[in-house]
């Protein structure tokens, strides 16, 4: 019982994801699975970004670079070198983590808007480079031979279900990592950096190292997820892999749910995609869905900057223990 209470924040977060996963599992519909796939992919991406954005306070505007680069590395290994999905996913994660490590050493010295600008520059530079990089197919990209999917359960449909459960498992892993960071000494150091980096250093927090590792952690999972996403997709091209818009959507999800909390990005990611799906299919909003989403974003930024979880936490301090 004591353990249950201690981990109530984590358990609640995982239950939310499991409930989402249960939905298509029970009704068995491909369309529901696709809807939920997008939702939990967003949950995983937003939770990854939250380690840097929410805990450490660094606004990575080009975080999609890790999704795209990891996706490309893994996809290349699958499509050209005939690797299977699992090691390719691992390689994608390693590639993104490595990029974040070296990048972090350089650009995490920049603060505030300068860091945000640099991350945009990095994403654009990598995108433009891949556009020219022949082994990765240049502007055309790469595609998987359809027969590959037969190795994952028999056919394309089975491979899609497999991808879905793989994503679910990864998402839960991201949440566990996010929770572990949030409740660790390392995480406390990150929070201190977020609040006042110079003061944190004066108290002994080795900020350059801590920031770099936060950046690496927040980059690894998008790399792995990129491989899975483009495997399921069947092809990869520079434009969708490094879509700056996705970066910004990730930030919006974190912000919507509540940055710096474990549960916030989960609600934000799932809620954002659900809402977007609604706008896209609703005849009234279909054509101006982007404008409606923009309007709601503005309302959130202006009036509830702490996000849903942050707002609830401030209104009901007693719930702080559960809503971590």
């Amino acid at each position: 019982m004591n353990g249950l209470r201690k981990y109530s924040g984590l358990i609640l977060a995982i239950v939310v994801v499991l409930a989402l996963v249960a939905w298509p599992t029970i009704n068995g519909k491909d369309i529901t699975r696709e809807v939920v796939f997008t939702m939990i992919l967003s949950v995983a991406l937003a939770s990854s970004l939250n380690i840097l954005l929410g805990y450490t306070g660094y606004v990575s505007f080009g975080h999609v670079v890790f999704f795209g680069l990891g996706g490309y590395v893994g996809f290349y290994l699958m499509a050209v070198q005939n690797w299977s999905l699992w090691p390719a996913m691992l390689a994608g994660g390693v590639a993104s983590g490595t990029l974040a490590f070296f990048l972090g050493k350089a650009i995490l010295r920049l603060r505030g808007g300068y860091f945000a600008l640099a991350t945009i520059g990095v994403n654009e530079a990598v995108r433009a480079f891949i556009n020219n990089y022949k082994p990765f197919g240049g502007p055309v990209g790469l595609s998987l031979n359809f027969s590959v999917y037969q190795n994952y359960g028999g056919g394309a449909r089975e491979a899609l279900w497999l991808s879905f459960y793989m994503l679910a498992a990864l998402t839960i892993l991201v949440i566990i990592v996010s929770y572990a960071v949030r409740t660790s000494k390392f995480g406390l150091g990150l929070l201190a950096i977020r609040e006042d980096e110079d003061a944190a250093e004066i108290m002994g927090v080795r900020a350059p190292n801590a920031k770099t590792w936060a950046y690496v952690l927040s980059a690894i999972f998008p790399g792995i997820l990129g491989v899975l996403f483009f495997f399921k997709n069947g092809n990869i091209e520079p434009a969708p892999a490094f879509r700056l818009q996705l970066s910004i959507e990730m930030i919006v999800m974190v912000m919507l749910g509540g940055q710096g909390t474990v549960l916030g990005p989960i609600l934000g990611g799932a809620g954002y995609q659900r809402f977007r799906g609604f706008l896209l299919t609703n005849p009234l909003f279909k054509n101006i869905q982007l404008a409606v989403a923009g309007f709601l974003l503005l309302i959130i930024v202006l009036f509830i900057p702490a996000g849903i979880i942050g707002w609830v936490r401030n209104r009901f301090p007693k719930l702080r223990r559960v809503l971590q």
Binding site: G189, A192, A200, M203, G204, R206
Partner: peptide, 9 residues
């Protein structure tokens, strides 16, 4: 205060 204790001497 925990930050002080965690990262201090």
């Amino acid at each position: 205060v925990i930050v002080g204790a965690c990262f201090g001497r």
